[in-house]
Amino acid sequence: MIEVKNIVKKFGAFAALDHVDLKVANGELLALLGPSGSGKTTLLRIIAGLDWPDAGEVSFDGENALAHGASERHVGFVFQHYALFRHMTVFENVAFGLRVQPRAIRKDEAAIRARVKELLDLVQLDWLSSRYPSQLSGGQRQRIALARALAIEPRILLLDEPFGALDAKVRKELRQWLRSLHHEINVTSIFVTHDQEEALEVANRVVVMDKGRIVQIGTPGDVYDNPATAFVHSFIGESIVLPVEVRDGCVELGGKPLNISADGVSSGASKLFVRRHDMAIGPAGSGAFEGAVRHVRTFGPIQRAEVALSAGEGTTVIEIDAPRDRELQPGDIVSLHPRRYRIFAGQD
């Protein structure tokens, strides 16, 4: 188990990590998700021993990891831009970690060759072993970087934005592949990403970070369905956000009461978050909002409508997703009701 306790890391006056605690169980595939500058890469580098915290503890299976430098931690690190050794062939890149072992425990040449072959087979790139990194595509480099990191039989595998530098199509393929690879080798893995879709699709557990703090930890379903904060709600999945006022348990939009519960949020300016597909359309007068359909687009199974809500002064335009069997026309007056929603106190 990897345990991070109360980690603080400052770059000048900027707190990259602000008292961060995290436990990772063996065999997990964990995503560190957050916008750039949220501290996720710094946390990853501290676990790897490539950066040092100003305060706090890091332990692997109860053993103090900070007592060891990066070279002694047996951590496999896959760099965002791969950091393949450009003057070595693919084979030598993967063999590197085996060749630099102390003589006493170093494998002999035949064993090294066998192990490298095995790893190249694992990442399905055996046929590239005598190429140089500059001759590979981005996706191939990524997989070689992974094979190289696995060569030292790491106790944890850390991946920094593993798909960040790849184009959209390759990225999708590699996600699948990484999941199945993790299933196969079952090494505790942590990867950093700013792409919520990637985190939700690949990881068993997602750690959402913002401004140097962990704001939520949970399964992909958890963080999507029950976001802990307004930030998580808007960062993960697309949301309709409406500025509302909570007054004595009632929710008002532009001075007009909405027919929904305040969910225990105390009085004051708040924000109402609804997923687009959670807005149910009913006949006029039946829901929390009334509005006029302005524009309808259909693609695939979805019908997306722009609805101008008539609330208070001025109009607020929102986009909702409706099933295609519910026919909508510009000019229709509809009633909308949130099937699920969250209200968070405060302006931000």
Binding site: L50, L84, R86
Partner: peptide, 13 residues
């Protein structure tokens, strides 16, 4: 320093 960091994390002195 990325290649050096990679080498160190792979156990090189």
């Amino acid at each position: 320093t990325q290649e050096e960091e990679a080498a160190i994390s792979l156990g090189a002195s």
